[in-house]
Simulated assay, not measured.
Amino acid sequence: MAYFPMFVDMTDRPCLIVGGGNVAYRKVMVMLDFGAKVTVVAEDICDELGNLTADDIADENKSVSDTANKENGQTDLDAEGRITVVKRKFDQKDCNGMEIVIAATDDNALNHEIAEYCKSKGIMVNAVDQKADCSFIFPSYVKEKNLVAAFSSGGNSPVLTQYLKGKEQEILTPFLGELNEYMGQIRESVLSEYDTEAERKRVFKEILCAAIDNGMIPEL
């Protein structure tokens, strides 16, 4: 099985996480880190996950669509309006309308059932620690603002990807994250001022090297 490396804009895209334990919590934090709108469905919620939405857990009898589409303030959402927790048993219809589903329960059979349903509906799915049930996998990554480095072993060796992540953290610093933001801010002006790709590349490289050498972000 070969996985294609691809960065996808998840901003405000609906994502379902089934499960309320520590593993589910970690997946929630990853999806929130990349701007997704997250719905969690689980009968039991761990303390870490509960603390995200302590006053906002949806009633057991409400569906995902009921809680996710409230008007007038969306009082059951937290984390900048991007997370909904529904405390009840999972139902297959919870997957409908989702772009990504993560099966993170402690029941392998249920995770497999969720994965099979999602695949039949063309929904991208990850079943935690069940490689054969995954249509995508989570890489180990380092993120500083919009600058991201990610590593994947195709599910073969999480220990190796964690090792690579540790090494990358020594290189991908908060300073580089800030520098990347600056480069994005000046991009349009450089593109409009210089006509050829070679000139633009030279200017961007000069700015980048000067900032790194001086350890300072240029002023706009």
Rank of each mutant, 00 (worst) to 15 (best):
A54Y: 13
I45G: 13
E60P: 10
G21A: 14
M29T: 10
V28T: 04
L49I: 14
E60V: 10
A54M: 15
A36P: 05
G20W: 12
A24K: 11
D33K: 13
F34K: 00
G20S: 06
M31F: 07
G20Q: 04
T53H: 10
S65D: 07
D33M: 02
N61S: 08
S65F: 15
E48P: 02
A42W: 08
E48V: 02
E48G: 04
V64C: 13
A24Y: 02
V30L: 13
I45D: 14
A54K: 12
A36F: 10
A36V: 05
D55V: 04
E60A: 02
R26Y: 13
N22L: 08
A58H: 02
N22E: 10
A42Y: 07
G35N: 00
L32W: 12
A58M: 11
G21P: 10
V38Q: 06
V28F: 04
A42Q: 12
L49K: 07
N51P: 13
D33F: 01
I45N: 13
G20Y: 01
L32I: 01
G21C: 14
K27T: 08
T39W: 03
C46S: 07
N22I: 13
E48Q: 06
V40N: 14
E48Y: 02
E43N: 02
G35L: 04
D55H: 08
S65L: 01
L32E: 08
A42F: 08
E43A: 01
D66A: 13
T53A: 11
V28G: 09
I45C: 11
V41E: 01
G50E: 07
T39A: 04
V41L: 01
N22V: 10
T39L: 03
D66V: 08
T53E: 08
D56P: 00
D47V: 14
L49A: 06
T53M: 06
V30S: 01
V30Y: 00
V30P: 00
L49H: 13
